[in-house]
Amino acid sequence: MAKGFINVSISGSGDVSYYLRESECLHVQSSANLSTERAELLEEWKQLERQEKMGNKDLGIRGRHDAQVRKNYTLSLPNELSAKEAANRIEAMLKETPIKDCSYSICIHRGEKDGVQNLHAHVLVNERNLITRKKDRQMIKKEFLEKEFRPKFEQAFAAERALGKDLVSRERIEPALFQSSPEVARELLRIYQEQAEKLKKIANTNSEKTSITNKQKLEVPVQKQPESNHQTQKLNLQSKKRGYVLKV
């Protein structure tokens, strides 16, 4: 996973079937209002596009021919994760943002170039709030990406980013490997156990830092700002008019 990599592109009429293609899409996970079946999911995204462009009086959608139907968040992921685990982490992250109340689909892809695998996700989001039926304009702004989405994404995969790219996946240590190459299997198992301990320590450290920070925020005393000379002079003038002098 490229450190801190995140790319966002906005599409109004992109082909959703590209993100759902069987040849590369390993797993799909969507918001509760969308289907888990790819064929149905594709049709549902087409229906969302028709509503945004042509309108829907029942839902209070006016419709615009140039409407932005969805935003595509492209996220680079650690190669050692399974597609399901990666999707679960991303969805847990989305539930901490306004995206939780929108229509979204998480498409996990595994590409390959020059023998190097590239696990990544395309998160398709329609920014219309399912409760208010209005578009959340905050999600269109750059501040949402930089100050809310990106930090939560990096935090969700902080442990893997801290250890780097060369993590050993548990799936690589197959039972057959102990028969064919027992020394290699034992070495992989040792590395896996070591990195598991490191991941645990990193997670505990991050949790402790968060607790300390929150505690410090609660303990910070509120200091009363001293009155300026201008304010003091103003009070004295008002006091003289009323027949007494304010001493400070």
Results as ranks from 00 to 15, higher is better:
224 K>P: 02
37 E>V: 12
162 A>Q: 09
144 F>T: 04
198 K>G: 06
76 S>Q: 14
103 S>P: 04
152 K>A: 05
226 P>I: 04
246 L>H: 13
21 R>Y: 02
13 S>A: 14
240 K>D: 05
117 Q>I: 04
86 A>D: 03
122 H>D: 13
146 E>H: 09
94 L>H: 04
100 K>V: 03
96 E>G: 09
114 D>S: 15
130 L>I: 07
30 S>A: 15
204 N>C: 13
85 E>Y: 06
33 N>P: 06
221 P>F: 01
4 G>Q: 06
202 I>V: 09
223 Q>I: 13
4 G>A: 11
223 Q>M: 11
155 Q>P: 00
157 F>H: 05
109 H>Q: 14
141 K>Q: 14
31 S>F: 04
102 C>F: 04
232 T>Q: 13
131 I>W: 12
203 A>H: 13
133 R>W: 07
65 H>W: 03
208 E>A: 13
224 K>M: 08
44 E>M: 06
64 R>K: 15
160 E>A: 04
109 H>I: 02
160 E>T: 01
132 T>C: 11
240 K>W: 13
217 K>M: 11
193 Q>R: 15
211 S>I: 04
115 G>P: 02
91 E>K: 11
169 S>I: 00
150 R>I: 07
34 L>Y: 01
71 K>N: 09
109 H>C: 04
172 R>L: 15
22 E>I: 04
227 E>L: 12
14 G>R: 02
118 N>Q: 11
154 E>M: 15
184 V>C: 11
119 L>Q: 06
225 Q>G: 12
244 Y>L: 11
57 K>I: 09
57 K>N: 10
133 R>F: 06
92 A>F: 06
9 S>V: 11
181 S>G: 03
71 K>P: 01
179 Q>M: 15
233 Q>E: 15
223 Q>G: 10
84 K>T: 13
10 I>V: 13
100 K>N: 07
135 K>S: 08
195 Q>Y: 03
137 R>M: 10
179 Q>W: 14
101 D>H: 12
199 L>T: 02
41 L>I: 05
154 E>R: 10
64 R>W: 00
228 S>P: 04
92 A>D: 06
199 L>N: 08
15 D>E: 11
164 G>C: 08
91 E>C: 05
180 S>L: 12
75 L>K: 05
236 N>P: 05
107 C>T: 00
139 M>F: 05
211 S>H: 10
117 Q>K: 14
98 P>E: 02
122 H>L: 05
215 K>H: 10
83 A>F: 00
52 E>H: 00
227 E>P: 08
96 E>H: 07
136 D>I: 07
177 L>E: 02
162 A>Y: 07
59 L>D: 10
245 V>G: 09
46 K>F: 03
115 G>N: 05
179 Q>K: 08
219 E>S: 13
110 R>Y: 05
121 A>M: 03
162 A>V: 06
171 E>F: 10
